[in-house]
Amino acid sequence: MTAYVVFIRESTQDPDELAAYNATVKPSFEGHPIAFHALYGDYEVLEGPPVEGVVIVSFPTMDEARAWYHSPAYQAVAQHRFKGATYRSILVQGVD
């Protein structure tokens, strides 16, 4: 079943670290079956605290999503995201 990874940026601490992340994350997708569904587009918070942005990506399976997220390539780049902002990241199985 399709798996979705939802990244919710709650607050920015270091814009330069986020810029480094954005400039270097693309190669981590190579060899992984990732599809983008939302990429910091227009949004409306219906419940809960305000957020700064949302990204939604999908993979064919939970295992493939985990393989990308835990890959050395992504984890090296993710260090910039960790330093740049507070995120909530969620992996959720879809329904087919």
Results as ranks from 00 to 15, higher is better:
Gln75Leu: 02
Ser71Cys: 01
Leu46Val: 14
Thr12Ser: 03
Glu17Gly: 11
Gly94Ala: 01
Pro33Lys: 08
Ala73Met: 03
Ala35Arg: 14
Pro60Phe: 00
Gly41Pro: 03
Pro50Glu: 07
Pro60Lys: 02
Asp96Cys: 10
Val51Glu: 10
Gly48Lys: 10
Met1Lys: 09
Trp68Gln: 03
Val45Asn: 01
Ser11Ile: 04
Pro15Ala: 15
Phe82Asp: 15
Asn22Phe: 05
Asp63Arg: 12
Ala20Pro: 05
Lys26Met: 13
Ala73Asp: 04
Tyr4Ser: 06
Arg81Lys: 11
Ala85Met: 02
Val6Trp: 01
Pro33Tyr: 05
Glu17Tyr: 09
Val25Trp: 00
Pro72Leu: 01
Tyr74Ala: 02
Leu46Tyr: 08
Leu18Pro: 02
Ala23Phe: 06
Thr12Pro: 11
Thr2Asp: 07
Glu64Met: 05
Tyr87Phe: 10
Phe59His: 03
Val51Asn: 08
Thr86Glu: 13
Pro50Leu: 10
Val95Asn: 11
Thr24Gln: 04
Glu64Leu: 03
Phe7Gln: 05
Val5Trp: 12
Asp42Pro: 11
His37Gln: 03
Ala76His: 13
Pro15Glu: 11
Tyr21Val: 13
His80Arg: 05
Met62Trp: 12
Asp63Tyr: 09
Pro15Phe: 09
Arg81Cys: 06
Thr86Ser: 12
Val77Ala: 09
Asn22His: 12
Met62Ile: 15
Phe82Tyr: 07
Gly53Asn: 00
Val57Phe: 15
